[in-house]
């Protein structure tokens, strides 16, 4: 996408085919979202397109619907906590894999990356069986554990990518200049990793916030996340409230993206992932 987007300007005079493709891609991606946005502002009472009139009544309805509010709180809390824990576990793991003399480092790395290939339903079911039923861990506890596991690969992979790009001599230089291992970590390693950590945090938060399968399996009384609440709402009633919530989420995503871009820059955040 970014390549097509970047070449839009010169394409205007020289590459009509590419321009058409790029516009088509944007339409395919953004079209359904625009449809949802339009529906959210309808004054009618059903999801129809084009919307009938204009009103903000569905936003009001969404804001006063208790399960959505509770879900938003739960989602925000779980996403924040899971992101923080995943980073707290993932960053030292990354350092050990990349910098330490760890026996079987490939095994450790694959272990941390495995949740990405493991079907979430299997993971959820396993957690449900073992932790909730077997050990009697609370629903909110298991939900948090599940989301943390889900985010670990991002924490390890994304910070690992920026660590792999950093000159290993930086840490040696700090040691040579008289800094002990702890000072070196806080004065050099961590600041150098900051863009990677920011990227992992953004990715992790969004991944957790949007997650449905794990949240659905591990839900309990009072631990319904917003996506789960929306899903359940849609199953029983089909009105523009869900569209209104979606618009709010879309807006939040845009805000996060803009803030991340301002803070570290997308190139820095996503530039190193492929390596």
């Amino acid at each position: 996408m970014s390549r097509a987007g970047r070449s839009l300007r010169p394409a205007r005079e020289r590459r009509p085919v590419l321009t058409v493709l790029a516009v088509a891609a944007y339409l395919i991606m953004l079209g359904p979202a625009l449809f949802v946005v339009a529906v959210a502002f309808t004054s009618g009472s059903t999801i129809t397109f084009p919307p009938e009139g204009f009103s903000l009544r569905w936003f009001g309805a969404a804001a006063s619907y208790r399960p959505f509010l509770d879900g938003l709180g739960t989602s925000a809390l779980v996403a924040t906590a899971a992101t923080v824990i995943a980073l707290a576990v993932g960053i030292p793991a990354t350092l050990a894999v990349h910098r330490g003399r760890l026996p079987g480092r490939a095994v450790v790395q694959n272990l941390f990356l495995s949740p990405i290939v493991l079907p979430e339903l299997v993971l959820g079911l396993a957690l449900y069986q073992q932790l909730m039923v077997g050990l009697g861990v609370t629903a909110s506890g298991v939900l948090l554990i599940g989301h943390t596991i889900l985010l670990l690969p991002y924490a390890v992979r994304v910070t690992g990518a920026s660590l792999a790009l950093a000159d290993p001599a930086l840490e040696e230089a700090a040691r040579g200049l008289g800094a002990g291992p702890v000072t070196t970590f806080f004065r050099v390693t961590l600041p150098v990793l900051r863009p990677g950590i920011a990227a992992a945090a953004v990715l992790g938060f969004v991944t957790s916030f949007n997650n449905v399968p794990l949240s659905l399996l591990l839900q309990g009384p009072g631990t319904e996340t917003l996506p789960v609440a929306m899903l359940q709402y849609v199953q029983t009633s089909y009105d523009p409230v869900v569209a209104a919530v979606s618009v709010v989420l879309l807006l939040a995503a845009v805000v996060v993206a803009v803030v991340a871009e301002r803070l570290v820059g997308f190139n820095k955040i996503f530039g190193g992932i492929g390596s």
Binding site: G176, G178, R187
Partner: peptide, 30 residues
């Protein structure tokens, strides 16, 4: 860190997040 050596690396290994002055002052600060 206990040897009091001044090493110049082939890659220079300057701290990218610090200014020139802070790079040079790093050893004194710690």
């Amino acid at each position: 860190e206990k040897r009091n050596i001044g090493m110049v690396f082939q890659s220079y290994a300057l701290f990218p997040h610090l200014t020139v002055a802070k790079n040079v002052g790093f050893g004194l600060k710690v």
